[in-house]
Design a protein around this nucleic acid. Structure first.
Lengths: 349, 349
DNA sequence: GTGCGAACGGCAAGCGCTTGCCGAAAGCGC
DNA sequence: GCGCTTTCGGCAAGCGCTTGCCGTTCGCAC
């Protein structure tokens, strides 16, 4: 985009018959300027449809106002909701958001950090799940290090290894454990779990938390009870289908995300297995749509928008000392009609 | 973000003991450089964790690679899906996307165009519905004009008045008409419509198309049969609730978006009205989740991702002549279980 | 051995803006 | 009415990079 020559501050200044310095000060209100001159400048700018060159401004010292956000997949309701929160805070602060979508490709993440670094974004948000891959984390940390050294601000959502940055942590572990406890209290004793890739910290935490919760109630969960699928609706469908083919013996299926749970329900429906009368299903996240499913989904409600808001805020606030901060956001178990109560004989004598 | 001083090309050049010009050429592959020097430069850049200043690059002539996208609400599944398509094409072209969210505030749109103009974005996409408000359209056109004059590329999704730019048009009118025809064919004769704000061209087109479709089949739709609500799930719920309170006499309710239809279904459910046995419900868009509702929603399927992809492509391709191009994308009626067939006495003798 | 072109490094001029500093003009007290 | 402070416009120096142009060096043919 450079075929035409743009209107520059020079042009405006010339048209208003003042120096560029004065024009700049009028347009930015940096210093008071005599009303008459100011008016001339404004008029000229308007007439010429002047738009300052943000790059030149950034170069000249006024730092850039474009924050960077890297997510895995905008079209996933989970990220879409978080992004909504991010956008709200960004808008409040007059910031433009550069949104990068990795399409769940971890390598992309690093490349985008690099691009955002080049953009001199004052802050970068990583709103996708962290990964367990040590090599990748090291590479990411390496890319982030010089950025941080130069004063860049970084905030992440969910647990990321080896990154000394501010983070917003949904309580995946505790939430899943609480859910497990609740389900056991409802009488369930045999569970199956549908997980996403174990490489994701979010998956590990939720699975671990669920297992802990069951263990605490004395209910076992063997490796065979866990089926891995892609982190999508179709992944949930697939995993559920496999599970059914292998012989579904659980009374309750826990999918580590609502999106997967939705797929699971579809698979069950397609095979004529009724929810919750034949099998109960629970998810995690409470994305907006799950309350409108039939039956509405039991899940762990995360304050998704807030996750995004807090992350953006962390990245914007001045960090008190040099310490990294952690904001923990609890999830709340929401029992809906997708899980039923199972009558059990009294357990304790 | 300017407390620390960044590593500059100068620094790299100095470290590699070459001129900045040479360093630049090595790093960009602009011109061949002797292998030995090249290596020295690369090493130095790596060691210093050099990240070029994108603003300086942009200023120095290499045009910016950050396209702008303005949408109404990222967390709405409709926009999320479109954004997914946009992101895909952007990623393929190595572009960063600046995503602005207007929160359905039309004024914001113009402000964002202005910001994007300042960013010297080579292209701007407007992916929200156009509006019927003449004043606003004029203002938007005025803001876009100098941008276009300077070689900026603009593409919009859906019908926008008074903008001489490339556009991608989902066939709202035809789709709604086809849906109406189909519903009539299924035996429905009394309809109710849930619309969003009439100020939106998308609403006007879908409503108009639906009405046309009915008219063509000889089925009337009076003003009282149309209820307006917010363009959201809750808006759909509200509108449906009102409709019920006023006395629901239709056998089929058409909501102009799936999102509203979802709300409508919830309202019906809450009042014990069964879908589709008591009343049929149809939506528009075919956002991913509607096939997983119970009953799955009858709707007009739009190729949402493709909408985004095509728009981005239009904005990127060189325009053949100076003509603006129009890409029409048809919607396809998808009948699912939310609409039932109603037995009617033979109409024709 | 000489002359010529090809290959490649560096110089320096910007790109469009902000801002520290200087100087001129204006306002003030006595 | 004079010298002081205050107010405000302009000058010019960058910010970090790219690139046209020039100069040097080298290889090659003759």
């Amino acid at each position: 985009m450079t075929d035409r020559s743009f209107v520059t501050l020079q042009d405006v200044a010339r048209a208003a018959d003042v120096s560029p310095a004065t024009a700049s000060r009028v347009l930015n209100g940096t210093r008071p300027v005599r009303a008459e001159l100011a008016e001339r400048v404004q008029t000229a700018a308007g007439r010429l449809a002047y738009a300052p060159n943000a790059h030149a401004q950034a170069l000249a010292g006024t730092s850039s106002r474009n924050v960077g956000v890297i997510c895995h997949d905008v079209s996933d309701p989970y990220f879409a909701a978080i992004a909504g929160g991010v956008m709200r805070v960004a808008a409040h602060n007059g910031l433009l958001v550069m949104l990068a979508n990795t399409f769940r490709n971890a390598g992309q993440e690093i490349e985008y950090v690099s691009m955002l670094r080049a953009q001199r974004a004052p802050a970068i948000l990583l709103i996708g799940s962290g990964v367990e891959d040590r090599t990748r984390n090291r590479a990411l940390a390496a890319e982030l290090a010089p950025y941080l050294r130069d004063g860049g601000r970084v905030a992440v959502i969910s647990r990321h290894h080896g990154l000394r940055v501010d983070s917003v942590l949904p309580e995946n572990r505790a939430g899943a454990a609480a859910l497990a406890g609740r389900l056991v209290a409802m009488g369930h004793r045999r569970f199956a779990v549908l997980t996403g890739p174990r490489a994701l910290t979010t998956v590990v935490d939720r699975l671990g938390g669920f297992r802990d919760g069951l263990a605490k109630a004395g209910v076992p969960l063997s490796g065979k009870d866990v089926t891995e699928g892609a982190f999508t609706r179709d992944g949930g469908y697939q995993a559920m289908a496999e599970l059914i083919d292998r012989g579904l013996r659980a009374t309750c299926v826990f999918a580590v995300t609502d999106v997967m749970a939705i797929g699971a329900c579809a698979a069950l429906r397609d095979r004529g297995i009724a929810v919750p009368s034949d099998v109960s299903v629970a998810g995690f996240d409470d994305i907006p749509v799950v309350r409108d499913l039939t039956p509405p989904l039991t899940t762990v409600a995360l304050p998704l928008e807030q996750l995004g808001e807090r992350a953006m805020q962390l990245a914007l606030e001045d960090r008190p000392s040099g310490r990294t901060r952690v904001v923990r956001l609890a999830g709340e178990v929401v029992v809906r009609a997708s899980t039923r109560r199972i009558p059990t004989r009294k357990e304790s004598p």
